Computed example of a mutant assay.
Amino acid sequence: MSDMNALSPRDRLIVGLDVSSRQEAEAIVTELGDEVGFYKIGYQLGFAGGLPLVGELTRMGKKVFLDLKLHDIANTVEKGIESIAGLGAAMTTIHAYPQVMRAAAKAADGTNLCVLGVTVLTSLSDEDLRESGYGGSVSDLVELRARQAADAGIGGIVASAQEAALVGALLAPGMALVTPGIRPAGSEAGDQKRVVTPGDALRNGSTHLVVARPIIAAPDRLAAARAILAEMQDA
């Protein structure tokens, strides 16, 4: 991922397989065909028998973002990252605490796994952070975590595109900036509080976009994916 500018929209779009069965996930992959080359597997599918899909999708020529948001003592994180790399995942997530990021960077060194630090979940607001005991704003914490991620040497961060322009300059060359909470114009925000359109996300500096509900819940998933790819191409 050394040259993010060379990535095509197909390389940048990550479709979230946020479903509860392997059968449904496989049906989505089949329906989207060659249009989509990158998929996210998170808790919902992973703990419903979806982990073997990491290897299967990889053998099909797809990339997989295994979104498990690890956060534990250094040794446990290291062993977890080693196992995730062994599955063949292209990306995975940890919570962006310095000790966790340093342990993950050590474990991922020499592998093809891009470790992403989750800065602040896109469902959280300034008020949510205050309730959790943080004194600053969302943007303050995202900026701090971005600096710490670059210092730790991990592959990138996860942040809302609303913060992308702020943190992009803080990242080392080649680091990924992955944005969830993407919603095409006119779609429902759902439980996300910091959402943007695909075009705005790319213009703000995001390198990869995670899209789930706007595609997998659409009446015509292939048409929805194509529309988002077209918007990304225009941007």
Rank of each mutant, 00 (worst) to 15 (best):
L202H: 03
I81N: 03
A223F: 15
A150W: 02
F47K: 04
R130F: 12
G37Y: 06
R213H: 14
G42A: 02
A149P: 00
K40L: 13
F38T: 09
R183G: 03
V15Q: 05
V15P: 07
L129T: 01
T197A: 03
G156C: 14
A227L: 11
K63D: 12
M1S: 13
G49P: 02
D3Q: 13
A107N: 07
S83Y: 15
V120D: 06
L222C: 02
V120N: 03
V118H: 01
L144I: 09
A189H: 14
I28C: 15
V120I: 15
E24G: 01
G190V: 08
G135P: 07
T119G: 00
S125F: 02
V196N: 14
N204C: 04
P219M: 11
K106L: 12
E131Q: 08
G55V: 08
G110W: 13
T111Y: 13
L51S: 05
R145K: 13
L121M: 11
A218C: 10
K79Y: 13
G205V: 13
V211A: 02
S123W: 06
A89C: 06
I81A: 02
G190Q: 03
R226P: 14
K79M: 11
K63N: 12
A103D: 09
Y39C: 03
E163I: 07
I28R: 10
D191G: 00
L116F: 07
S8I: 03
G135H: 11
L66D: 06
P98Q: 01
K69R: 09
L68R: 00
V195K: 04
I216D: 10
L70K: 08
E82Q: 15
R130M: 07
G80D: 02
T30D: 13
P52A: 04
A105K: 07
G16Q: 11
P219Q: 14
L129P: 07
A105T: 08
K63W: 14
L144N: 02
A169M: 08
K40F: 11
V158H: 05
M4N: 15
H208Q: 11
A152Q: 04
N112Q: 11
V142S: 08
V138R: 00
T207F: 05
S123D: 05
I14Q: 15
L32V: 06
L66Y: 15
H95K: 05
D72K: 05
S21C: 15
A104P: 00
A48K: 00
M1A: 15
G133H: 00
K106D: 10
A146Q: 00
D11A: 05
I154T: 13
L113E: 09
G117K: 02
E143F: 10
S21E: 05
